[in-house]
Amino acid sequence: MEYLTEFFTALIELSNAMAPYILFGLLFAGILHEFVPDTLVTRHLGKSNIFSVIKATLFGIPLPVCSCGVIPLATSIKKSGASKGSTLSFLISTPITGVDSILATYGIFGWVFTIYRVITSMIIAMVSGILANLFDKEERVETPAFSAVKASTAFSPAFSMQKKEETGESCCSTAASCCATEAKSFWLTSALRYAFVTLLGDIAKPLLWGLIIGALITVAIPQSFSEILIEYSWLSYLIVIAIAVPMYVCATASLPIAAGLMLSGVSAGAAFVFLSAGPATNTVTIGVVKKMLGTRSLAIYLGSIVVGSIVFGLGLDYIFSASEIDPASLVHMHEEAGVVAIVSSVILWGLVGYLLLRRKA
């Protein structure tokens, strides 16, 4: 009974932590879908080459979106015609380094650690994208009747106004502000429908299972594992990876955890592994990537993050040991819940439940 209570507590806390960012990501994706033509995404991110991977990586780095908020954005650009490699690169680079996370990293660890984190996340994202384009190529087929481009055009304000002109229903003939108001409300309605019906409907099931599994993992893992990492230093990288990959933690929230590990005596490299692998993936993202891109891309996604994080973690340890700098001396030492998180969680669960029940009906 106690374990069950802990599980539901962890599930509620995890939902409260993720829900605002997922809803924000969905809304942002819906607005992008309305104002960024699918042809633009296809032209810049649709090709299976290194340039589209670089563009996706650079596009993702400054966005202040966490590892759960990036899911609807990545789903959106994939549906708009982005290649698997570009989608993976965007999925990895975006949650590790946003503007907020970069500034927070500098505030806690200084400029050396910050620059190293940004550059290595770019490399991991690009390598993952290139590998996906090389080993998981997809066959492109022409969509005959109702393509994504036609769909977005059909639900655009311009198309709505054109249809009114063809049928003689011109609201402009009666009121000057009528057209602007109707166009504004129409694109907003279309954006909301795309975000919270189309996109969320695509990821509702893996999102639900990811939250449940994530809560189970949170309960199963000890709250304080720094002593284990210090005692078995040669295994610290693998232990941190095993904890960080399935666990949900956003880039900014991972910083105080990594700082605490370093202050407890854990190596800077092991703390870096947590900062890199933790925000880049979690059980929710893993489920969505498998559904959206397939098993092979999922293996490339996880393999790139795990191997890249460990390699660059070892590199960071080497840099500090060669320069004889104590990593703990770099640490210059946030709790959120509240009404927004709780309301967001209720809204998200309500939408997921509604979409899953509607799909079964």
Rank of each mutant, 00 (worst) to 15 (best):
L211N: 04
P222Q: 09
P206L: 09
I217M: 14
G210A: 08
L216E: 00
S177K: 13
A251T: 08
G214Y: 11
W209C: 00
A183H: 05
I241D: 05
L192A: 15
M247H: 10
I230W: 10
I239W: 01
A244M: 04
Q223F: 05
V240N: 06
C178N: 11
T218V: 02
I213K: 07
S236Y: 09
L229C: 15
F186K: 05
Y232H: 15
A253Y: 03
A253K: 08
S190R: 07
A242N: 04
M247P: 09
L200N: 01
K184N: 14
I243K: 08
Y194N: 02
T181G: 04
Y237P: 09
I230L: 13
I241F: 10
R193E: 14
S177L: 10
A242T: 09
S185R: 12
W234G: 13
Y232S: 14
E227H: 09
I217Y: 07
A253C: 10
L200F: 03
S236A: 15
I243E: 07
A176C: 03
M247R: 09
I212N: 03
E227W: 08
I243P: 06
G201E: 09
L211W: 11
I217Q: 02
M247E: 07
I239H: 00
K184Y: 06
L216R: 02
A195F: 09
C178E: 01
F225C: 09
G214K: 01
P206E: 12
I213V: 15
M247I: 13
Q223A: 14
E227I: 08
S226N: 12
W234Q: 10
V249T: 12
I239C: 05
K205V: 10
A244H: 06
S236W: 07
D202C: 00
S190F: 08
A242H: 02
T252D: 08
L199Q: 07
E231V: 14
K205H: 04
G201H: 03
S177Y: 14
A195H: 11
E182T: 11
Y232V: 12
A183W: 00
A253N: 03
G210H: 00
S236F: 05
L192P: 00
E182K: 14
L235T: 01
Y194C: 01
T198S: 14
I243F: 09
C179S: 15
A176I: 05
V240W: 01
V249Q: 02
T218Y: 07
I228L: 14
A191E: 07
P222M: 06
I230H: 03
E182C: 03
K205D: 04
A176G: 11
A204C: 02
L200H: 04
G201R: 03
T218N: 15
Y248W: 06
I217H: 08
K184D: 05
A253F: 02
A180M: 14
A244V: 06
F196H: 01
E182A: 10
C179F: 06
E231D: 13
Y248H: 05
Q223T: 07
L216A: 12
Q223N: 15
A204K: 09
P246E: 04
A183D: 09
I213N: 03
I241E: 02
A195V: 15
L216P: 00
L207T: 12
P222S: 08
K184G: 11
Y232E: 13
V245S: 00
T181K: 13
R193L: 07
C250P: 04
L229R: 10
C250L: 00
G214L: 07
A242V: 02
S190A: 15
Y194S: 00
I203P: 01
